[in-house]
């Protein structure tokens, strides 16, 4: 895969950089890394990080140190759908353990692993700001809240369906 933005992505890159004063283009680093991750299969190999450094005219190390600090950047390949289940206090007292165990069981994976078909990755995360709607998980850009075993089944079926149709 070539780690280069296409025209649409490049236009978005320029919009992101334009929000900061002259000479402060490094400020766009976090949003640009999000853009790169979305554009390049959901994760950021070193080539992608180097590409971002060259675009922003900063040293590669400045990009590496940021990419390794923030939990949302994937530095390893992930499945097509990443189930990021919250396990912090408020979710735990509202039953997140049961949901986590159930996902492990139905997908036959442990946290950090991806299913053999490459569709699902399970990740345990800390509070996502949905404590009142627990148990919950983030999948891509959206939150799946008030989870039950039945809801988990339906969500998995839904993503399998979407993947089949593509």
């Amino acid at each position: 895969m070539a780690y280069i933005f296409n025209d649409t992505q490049m236009a978005e890159f320029k919009r992101l950089v334009s929000r900061y004063p002259e000479g402060k283009q490094k400020s766009a680093l976090l949003p640009v890394l999000h853009l790169a991750q979305e554009s390049f299969d959901g994760w950021l190999p070193t080539e992608a990080l180097d590409y971002v450094a060259s675009l922003l005219q900063i040293e590669p190390i400045e990009v590496y140190e940021v990419a390794t600090f923030y939990s949302m950047y994937n530095l390893k390949p992930v499945g097509k759908y990443v189930f990021e289940v919250c396990q912090t206090g408020p979710c735990m007292i509202s039953g997140s353990d049961t949901i986590i165990d159930y996902i492990k069981q139905v997908l036959s994976i442990q946290p950090g692993e991806t299913t053999k078909d490459g569709l699902f990755t399970l990740k345990l995360v800390e509070c996502l700001g949905a404590c009142g709607y627990a148990p919950m998980m983030q999948v891509g850009k959206i939150f799946r809240e008030h989870l039950t075993k039945e809801k988990v089944d339906a969500i998995i079926a839904e993503y399998r369906q979407t993947a089949n149709n593509n």
């Binding site: 400020s27 680093l29 976090l30 922003l56 140190e65 923030y70 939990s71 950047y73």
Partner: peptide, 23 residues
């Protein structure tokens, strides 16, 4: 500006660092 997953960036000077494109 979107952050990228770090509670510490709620602390105001960490937030500023992050807004400058740093850890």
């Amino acid at each position: 500006q979107r952050g990228a997953g770090a509670y510490i960036c709620g602390e105001e000077t960490a937030l500023i660092e992050s807004l400058e494109g740093k850890r």
